[in-house]
Design a protein around this nucleic acid. Structure first.
Lengths: 119, 119
DNA sequence: TCCATAATTCTATATTTATGGAAATATAAA
DNA sequence: TTTATATTTCCATAAATATAGAATTATGGA
Protein backbone atom coordinates (compact mmCIF):
# COMPACT_ATOMS: atom_id res chain seq x y z
CA UNK A 1 0.00 0.00 0.00
CA UNK A 2 1.11 3.53 -0.75
CA UNK A 3 1.26 6.23 1.87
CA UNK A 4 -1.47 8.27 0.22
CA UNK A 5 -3.89 5.38 0.37
CA UNK A 6 -2.98 4.57 3.96
CA UNK A 7 -3.57 8.22 4.87
CA UNK A 8 -6.92 8.22 3.14
CA UNK A 9 -7.95 5.03 4.94
CA UNK A 10 -6.81 6.27 8.35
CA UNK A 11 -8.49 9.64 7.81
CA UNK A 12 -11.67 7.91 6.81
CA UNK A 13 -11.65 5.72 9.91
CA UNK A 14 -10.74 8.56 12.27
CA UNK A 15 -14.32 9.71 12.77
CA UNK A 16 -16.81 8.12 15.08
CA UNK A 17 -19.67 7.59 12.65
CA UNK A 18 -17.40 6.25 9.92
CA UNK A 19 -15.53 3.97 12.30
CA UNK A 20 -18.84 2.56 13.51
CA UNK A 21 -20.06 2.09 9.94
CA UNK A 22 -16.87 0.34 8.90
CA UNK A 23 -16.88 -2.03 11.84
CA UNK A 24 -20.55 -2.73 11.26
CA UNK A 25 -19.75 -3.68 7.66
CA UNK A 26 -16.69 -5.72 8.64
CA UNK A 27 -18.90 -7.73 10.91
CA UNK A 28 -21.70 -7.95 8.38
CA UNK A 29 -19.60 -9.87 5.88
CA UNK A 30 -19.14 -9.72 2.11
CA UNK A 31 -22.84 -9.48 1.27
CA UNK A 32 -23.08 -6.04 2.83
CA UNK A 33 -25.97 -3.94 4.10
CA UNK A 34 -28.24 -1.33 2.51
CA UNK A 35 -27.83 2.36 3.34
CA UNK A 36 -31.20 2.46 5.03
CA UNK A 37 -30.38 -0.41 7.33
CA UNK A 38 -27.01 1.08 8.22
CA UNK A 39 -28.59 4.41 9.09
CA UNK A 40 -31.25 2.67 11.10
CA UNK A 41 -28.79 0.47 12.97
CA UNK A 42 -26.44 3.32 13.81
CA UNK A 43 -28.96 6.14 13.99
CA UNK A 44 -27.45 8.50 11.43
CA UNK A 45 -29.36 10.99 9.25
CA UNK A 46 -29.45 10.14 5.53
CA UNK A 47 -27.44 13.13 4.30
CA UNK A 48 -24.84 12.63 6.98
CA UNK A 49 -24.56 8.92 6.31
CA UNK A 50 -24.24 9.49 2.61
CA UNK A 51 -21.41 11.90 3.23
CA UNK A 52 -19.56 9.38 5.36
CA UNK A 53 -20.15 6.45 3.03
CA UNK A 54 -18.68 8.51 0.23
CA UNK A 55 -15.63 9.18 2.35
CA UNK A 56 -15.14 5.50 3.18
CA UNK A 57 -15.58 4.63 -0.49
CA UNK A 58 -13.07 7.23 -1.59
CA UNK A 59 -10.57 5.60 0.74
CA UNK A 60 -11.26 2.20 -0.79
CA UNK A 61 -12.44 0.81 2.55
CA UNK A 62 -15.90 -0.09 1.35
CA UNK A 63 -17.57 -0.97 -1.92
CA UNK A 64 -21.16 -0.85 -3.09
CA UNK A 65 -23.48 -2.41 -5.59
CA UNK A 66 -26.93 -1.35 -6.59
CA UNK A 67 -29.79 -3.80 -6.49
CA UNK A 68 -33.12 -2.39 -7.50
CA UNK A 69 -33.76 0.75 -5.46
CA UNK A 70 -31.25 -0.27 -2.79
CA UNK A 71 -27.52 0.25 -2.57
CA UNK A 72 -25.62 -2.38 -0.64
CA UNK A 73 -22.37 -1.38 0.99
CA UNK A 74 -19.75 -3.89 2.11
CA UNK A 75 -16.29 -3.80 3.68
CA UNK A 76 -13.25 -4.10 1.45
CA UNK A 77 -11.16 -6.60 3.38
CA UNK A 78 -8.23 -6.24 1.05
CA UNK A 79 -7.79 -2.58 1.91
CA UNK A 80 -8.18 -3.37 5.59
CA UNK A 81 -5.36 -5.90 5.40
CA UNK A 82 -3.25 -3.58 3.32
CA UNK A 83 -3.56 -0.88 5.94
CA UNK A 84 -2.58 -3.25 8.74
CA UNK A 85 0.42 -4.39 6.73
CA UNK A 86 1.42 -0.81 6.11
CA UNK A 87 1.31 0.06 9.81
CA UNK A 88 3.30 -2.93 10.95
CA UNK A 89 5.76 -3.06 8.10
CA UNK A 90 9.31 -3.84 9.16
CA UNK A 91 8.22 -3.90 12.77
CA UNK A 92 11.33 -3.83 14.97
CA UNK A 93 13.43 -4.40 11.90
CA UNK A 94 11.93 -7.87 11.68
CA UNK A 95 13.91 -9.09 14.67
CA UNK A 96 11.55 -11.43 16.51
CA UNK A 97 13.98 -11.76 19.40
CA UNK A 98 13.53 -8.06 20.08
CA UNK A 99 9.80 -7.66 20.24
CA UNK A 100 7.99 -10.96 19.83
CA UNK A 101 7.69 -13.92 17.52
CA UNK A 102 5.16 -12.59 15.04
CA UNK A 103 7.37 -9.72 14.01
CA UNK A 104 9.23 -12.09 11.72
CA UNK A 105 6.21 -12.04 9.46
CA UNK A 106 6.31 -8.27 9.09
CA UNK A 107 9.36 -7.83 6.89
CA UNK A 108 8.92 -5.51 3.96
CA UNK A 109 9.33 -6.79 0.45
CA UNK A 110 7.26 -9.96 0.39
CA UNK A 111 4.83 -10.63 -2.42
CA UNK A 112 1.90 -9.24 -0.45
CA UNK A 113 3.32 -7.08 2.28
CA UNK A 114 2.55 -7.63 5.90
CA UNK A 115 0.29 -10.12 7.51
CA UNK A 116 -2.96 -11.18 5.99
CA UNK A 117 -5.67 -11.09 8.58
CA UNK A 118 -8.80 -11.67 6.58
CA UNK A 119 -9.34 -12.24 2.88
CA UNK B 1 -9.69 -1.32 23.09
CA UNK B 2 -12.41 1.27 23.52
CA UNK B 3 -13.80 3.26 20.64
CA UNK B 4 -12.49 6.54 22.02
CA UNK B 5 -8.94 5.21 22.09
CA UNK B 6 -9.24 3.70 18.62
CA UNK B 7 -10.50 7.05 17.34
CA UNK B 8 -7.63 8.88 18.98
CA UNK B 9 -5.13 6.45 17.47
CA UNK B 10 -6.63 6.63 13.99
CA UNK B 11 -6.84 10.41 14.14
CA UNK B 12 -3.25 10.59 15.22
CA UNK B 13 -2.11 8.37 12.35
CA UNK B 14 -4.24 10.14 9.75
CA UNK B 15 -1.70 12.84 9.05
CA UNK B 16 1.32 12.46 6.82
CA UNK B 17 4.00 13.66 9.23
CA UNK B 18 2.63 11.65 12.13
CA UNK B 19 2.19 8.52 10.05
CA UNK B 20 5.80 8.81 8.90
CA UNK B 21 7.00 9.37 12.47
CA UNK B 22 5.06 6.39 13.77
CA UNK B 23 6.32 4.05 11.07
CA UNK B 24 9.83 5.31 11.63
CA UNK B 25 9.53 4.44 15.32
CA UNK B 26 7.89 1.08 14.64
CA UNK B 27 10.86 0.20 12.51
CA UNK B 28 13.35 1.66 14.99
CA UNK B 29 12.39 -0.80 17.71
CA UNK B 30 11.83 -0.53 21.47
CA UNK B 31 14.90 1.58 22.17
CA UNK B 32 13.44 4.52 20.27
CA UNK B 33 14.96 7.64 18.72
CA UNK B 34 15.60 11.18 19.97
CA UNK B 35 13.44 14.08 18.81
CA UNK B 36 16.36 15.67 17.04
CA UNK B 37 17.13 12.57 15.04
CA UNK B 38 13.50 12.09 14.09
CA UNK B 39 13.25 15.67 12.87
CA UNK B 40 16.47 15.28 10.96
CA UNK B 41 15.48 11.98 9.38
CA UNK B 42 12.05 13.19 8.33
CA UNK B 43 12.84 16.87 7.81
CA UNK B 44 10.29 18.42 10.15
CA UNK B 45 10.64 21.73 12.00
CA UNK B 46 11.04 21.43 15.80
CA UNK B 47 7.78 23.13 16.78
CA UNK B 48 5.85 21.13 14.23
CA UNK B 49 7.45 17.85 15.27
CA UNK B 50 6.76 18.57 18.92
CA UNK B 51 3.12 19.19 18.13
CA UNK B 52 2.83 15.88 16.30
CA UNK B 53 4.73 13.87 18.92
CA UNK B 54 2.34 15.20 21.52
CA UNK B 55 -0.58 14.06 19.42
CA UNK B 56 0.84 10.56 18.98
CA UNK B 57 1.55 10.39 22.71
CA UNK B 58 -1.93 11.51 23.61
CA UNK B 59 -3.24 8.64 21.51
CA UNK B 60 -1.01 6.19 23.35
CA UNK B 61 0.80 5.23 20.15
CA UNK B 62 4.23 6.28 21.34
CA UNK B 63 6.02 6.66 24.66
CA UNK B 64 9.05 8.65 25.70
CA UNK B 65 11.78 8.69 28.28
CA UNK B 66 14.22 11.43 29.07
CA UNK B 67 17.91 10.73 29.13
CA UNK B 68 20.06 13.70 29.91
CA UNK B 69 19.12 16.50 27.54
CA UNK B 70 17.55 14.10 25.07
CA UNK B 71 14.07 12.68 24.89
CA UNK B 72 13.76 9.28 23.28
CA UNK B 73 10.46 8.38 21.66
CA UNK B 74 9.46 4.82 20.85
CA UNK B 75 6.46 3.03 19.38
CA UNK B 76 3.89 1.50 21.71
CA UNK B 77 3.36 -1.88 20.09
CA UNK B 78 0.58 -2.79 22.44
CA UNK B 79 -1.59 0.08 21.24
CA UNK B 80 -0.76 -0.77 17.64
CA UNK B 81 -1.96 -4.32 18.16
CA UNK B 82 -4.99 -3.15 20.06
CA UNK B 83 -6.00 -0.93 17.18
CA UNK B 84 -5.61 -3.73 14.66
CA UNK B 85 -7.70 -5.99 16.83
CA UNK B 86 -10.36 -3.32 17.12
CA UNK B 87 -10.59 -2.88 13.35
CA UNK B 88 -10.79 -6.56 12.57
CA UNK B 89 -12.96 -7.60 15.48
CA UNK B 90 -15.61 -10.13 14.59
CA UNK B 91 -14.53 -10.02 10.98
CA UNK B 92 -17.18 -11.71 8.85
CA UNK B 93 -18.80 -12.92 12.03
CA UNK B 94 -15.79 -15.15 12.54
CA UNK B 95 -16.77 -17.45 9.70
CA UNK B 96 -13.49 -18.45 8.04
CA UNK B 97 -15.32 -20.24 5.26
CA UNK B 98 -16.77 -16.91 4.19
CA UNK B 99 -13.74 -14.73 3.90
CA UNK B 100 -10.56 -16.65 4.57
CA UNK B 101 -8.85 -18.84 7.09
CA UNK B 102 -7.40 -16.21 9.42
CA UNK B 103 -10.79 -14.78 10.25
CA UNK B 104 -11.24 -17.52 12.82
CA UNK B 105 -8.70 -15.70 14.95
CA UNK B 106 -10.71 -12.49 14.97
CA UNK B 107 -13.61 -13.44 17.18
CA UNK B 108 -14.47 -10.97 19.90
CA UNK B 109 -14.22 -11.99 23.49
CA UNK B 110 -10.79 -13.57 23.83
CA UNK B 111 -8.48 -12.55 26.66
CA UNK B 112 -6.65 -10.05 24.49
CA UNK B 113 -8.93 -9.28 21.59
CA UNK B 114 -7.88 -9.74 18.02
CA UNK B 115 -4.63 -10.93 16.63
CA UNK B 116 -1.33 -10.05 18.14
CA UNK B 117 1.05 -8.90 15.49
CA UNK B 118 4.00 -7.67 17.45
CA UNK B 119 4.71 -7.56 21.15
C1' DT C 1 -48.35 8.37 -15.71
C1' DC C 2 -48.37 9.39 -10.83
C1' DC C 3 -46.74 8.45 -6.29
C1' DA C 4 -43.80 6.66 -2.66
C1' DT C 5 -39.38 5.32 -1.29
C1' DA C 6 -34.05 5.15 -1.43
C1' DA C 7 -30.19 7.63 -1.65
C1' DT C 8 -27.35 11.52 -3.05
C1' DT C 9 -26.02 16.39 -3.81
C1' DC C 10 -26.26 21.24 -2.57
C1' DT C 11 -25.50 24.74 0.68
C1' DA C 12 -24.41 27.29 4.82
C1' DT C 13 -22.63 27.15 9.29
C1' DA C 14 -19.84 25.48 12.99
C1' DT C 15 -15.85 23.12 14.48
C1' DT C 16 -11.42 21.07 14.36
C1' DT C 17 -6.72 20.79 12.83
C1' DA C 18 -1.96 22.13 10.83
C1' DT C 19 1.90 25.25 10.44
C1' DG C 20 5.98 27.54 12.04
C1' DG C 21 8.15 31.86 14.08
C1' DA C 22 9.18 33.58 18.51
C1' DA C 23 9.61 32.94 23.26
C1' DA C 24 10.16 29.89 27.19
C1' DT C 25 12.01 25.89 29.70
C1' DA C 26 15.42 22.46 30.86
C1' DT C 27 19.75 20.11 30.93
C1' DA C 28 24.61 19.97 30.70
C1' DA C 29 29.18 21.51 29.33
C1' DA C 30 32.73 25.22 29.66
C1' DT D 1 27.68 31.25 36.27
C1' DT D 2 27.61 31.75 31.52
C1' DT D 3 26.68 29.58 27.25
C1' DA D 4 24.98 26.23 23.99
C1' DT D 5 21.85 22.71 22.80
C1' DA D 6 17.31 20.08 23.06
C1' DT D 7 12.66 20.40 23.24
C1' DT D 8 8.29 22.44 24.24
C1' DT D 9 4.69 26.04 24.54
C1' DC D 10 2.40 30.15 22.79
C1' DC D 11 0.13 32.37 19.22
C1' DA D 12 -2.03 33.81 14.91
C1' DT D 13 -3.26 32.37 10.54
C1' DA D 14 -4.74 29.15 7.07
C1' DA D 15 -7.03 25.09 5.71
C1' DA D 16 -9.85 21.02 6.12
C1' DT D 17 -13.89 18.64 7.98
C1' DA D 18 -18.71 17.64 10.06
C1' DT D 19 -23.64 18.48 10.25
C1' DA D 20 -28.20 18.39 8.55
C1' DG D 21 -32.24 20.78 6.14
C1' DA D 22 -33.84 21.32 1.57
C1' DA D 23 -33.72 20.12 -3.08
C1' DT D 24 -32.64 16.58 -6.54
C1' DT D 25 -32.16 12.12 -8.83
C1' DA D 26 -33.46 7.40 -9.54
C1' DT D 27 -36.08 3.18 -9.20
C1' DG D 28 -40.22 0.52 -8.88
C1' DG D 29 -45.18 -0.14 -7.76
C1' DA D 30 -50.13 1.31 -8.38
Amino acid sequence: MEMSQALAALGALAQDTRLAVFRFLVEAGPEGVTVGRIGEALDVAPATLSFHLKELSRAGLIANRQQSRFIWYSANYETMNGLIGYLTENCCKGQPEVCGIDCALQKKPTASRGKKVCA
